[in-house]
């Protein structure tokens, strides 16, 4: 393992332990929702980070179509796969939180519906990829699907502004109401967000390594084939 890997994993471990300490020991129990409000600390970072892969995919897919360099395709694919993991977990944790607070596991609310569509877009992207075998064609096809699909993330972001919804408003970020959170809760969500952000970044980086390993196998195969060809022609 490389030194930078160890540093990254160490940082993730420290951030996660601090987050767990804050979530379960430090933060006050919410006056209205009770302990179920603590699901907030894992649900919100997962859901917010679910909206980052579309930004990465939009940029990398455009770069791929312009430059045709496979590294951009690898990054787009990796971020979609991690995006699918994050949206799945955000949907599941959200559903578990909704049951004791709203009274239902699921409702066809604009925020929830657009988020489900985002999940379907990720799934569709990966399915389309798995059906296309030829690498160049697959990368081109994925890039176009990626650009079209990533626009949907905007709908998720704007859903709570544009339509009436049961989902709570944003409590962090630029669109948040001021003083929506208690200082201790604010610290808790910040540390938890950093921990999950590091995990998110590391997972994408690790996923792209699988792509470079596959590329390495490809070039080794070429070298072997070349040698075999030369031997047989002698």
């Amino acid at each position: 393992m490389l030194l930078q890997n160890r540093i990254m994993l160490g940082l993730i471990l420290i951030a996660m332990m601090s987050a767990l300490y804050l979530i379960f020991i430090m933060v006050p129990t919410d006056v209205n929702l009770g302990v179920s409000q603590r699901i907030f600390y894992i649900h919100v970072p997962l859901a917010v980070l679910s909206l980052i892969p579309p930004i990465i995919v939009f940029i990398t897919s455009t770069l791929y179509l312009v430059r045709r360099s496979p590294q951009w395709d690898a990054l787009a694919h990796s971020s979609v796969e991690v995006g699918l993991l994050f949206t799945t977990l955000a949907l599941v944790t959200g559903s578990i939180w909704a049951r004791p607070t709203w009274g239902v596991w699921w409702t066809w609310d604009p925020v929830l519906t657009t988020f489900l569509i985002l999940w379907l877009v990720y799934l569709g992207y990966l399915l389309i990829r798995s059906y296309t075998v030829e690498p160049d064609k697959r990368a081109r096809f994925s890039a176009i699907v990626g650009i079209l699909g990533s626009i949907n993330a905007l709908a998720v972001y704007l859903a709570s502004e544009l339509w009436r919804t049961i989902h709570p408003d944003k409590v962090i970020g630029p669109a948040a109401e001021e003083n929506a959170l208690d200082p201790a809760i604010q610290l808790g969500i910040l540390v938890s967000f950093i921990a999950i952000l590091l995990l998110f970044a590391y997972t994408i980086i690790f996923r792209t390594r699988l792509h470079s390993a596959v590329n390495q196998i490809g070039s080794l195969r070429d070298q072997i084939d070349d040698l075999v060809y030369r031997i047989s022609n002698k």
Binding site: P28, Q37, T101, W102, D182
Partner: peptide, 15 residues
């Protein structure tokens, strides 16, 4: 069916 819409403000019991 009844659904409960919760406030998007979270506060500890003391404050």
């Amino acid at each position: 069916d009844i659904l409960v819409k919760c406030p998007s403000k979270y506060t500890g019991e003391v404050t």
